[in-house]
Amino acid sequence: MVEVKGLRFSYLVGMDILKEVSFQAETGEIVGVLGANGVGKSTLLKLLAGILTPRDGSISIEGKPVQESYEKVAYISEAGSYFKDLTPKEFGTFLLDFFPDFDMVYYEKLLAYFQLEEKPIKNMSKGQKAKAEVAAGMAKRAKYIIMDEPFIGKDMFTRQDFMQALAGSLTGEETIFITTHEIDEIENFIDRGLILQDGKIAADVRMDDLRRQGKSLTGLMKEVTGYKDGNFTELLEK
């Protein structure tokens, strides 16, 4: 279980990007962290991964502070790792030294599945880099997986392959936090949506409940963020 209590964070003093964020996520739950650009989604994920430290409040994983649970967490982002001179296989060997549970067999399977070439990761396209990152993250066999925009730079077919590899590699015991603008790709995958707005959780819904009420995730996001469908008409009028 992940427990977040009274989380506050700012990059600059006095400018809180997250003001008061509290929630719990059960083991095995897949949570979509959603909201407009700049609302703090990536910041929240970095806090959950222990990469950033909160100004106030706490994050615990299985009752322990997140900084003490590093080996249980995989953080997968578009920004990628810091070892770009390595090829995918070299990167795997490196990870094996660091993470006792690193699954080399599965890692190589994923590299083959994603058709990744053996060349330095820094020379790869954005999409290929993301695949290398995902393969490394999943092969850590982490119980807590944090994914920041995993679809960036991926075409439709790659997104589909990626989602199938991801869904097929889960045991049901992993707790996942994922943020993306590709709502279509994840709306059947996530169990729950957290919508951030003004530094707080503006909506926290279970997908099954939302659908039983005849609502959609995009509809709810528009509702919460106050987005108006007719905005473009102002442009046309002149």
């Binding site: 889960l170 049901g172 059947n188 169990d191």
Partner: peptide, 17 residues
Amino acid sequence: SRREMAALLKINPNTVQ
């Protein structure tokens, strides 16, 4: 299997369960 279904439908294996 639960996993085959999860991969095929791109969903949480817990949903299959």
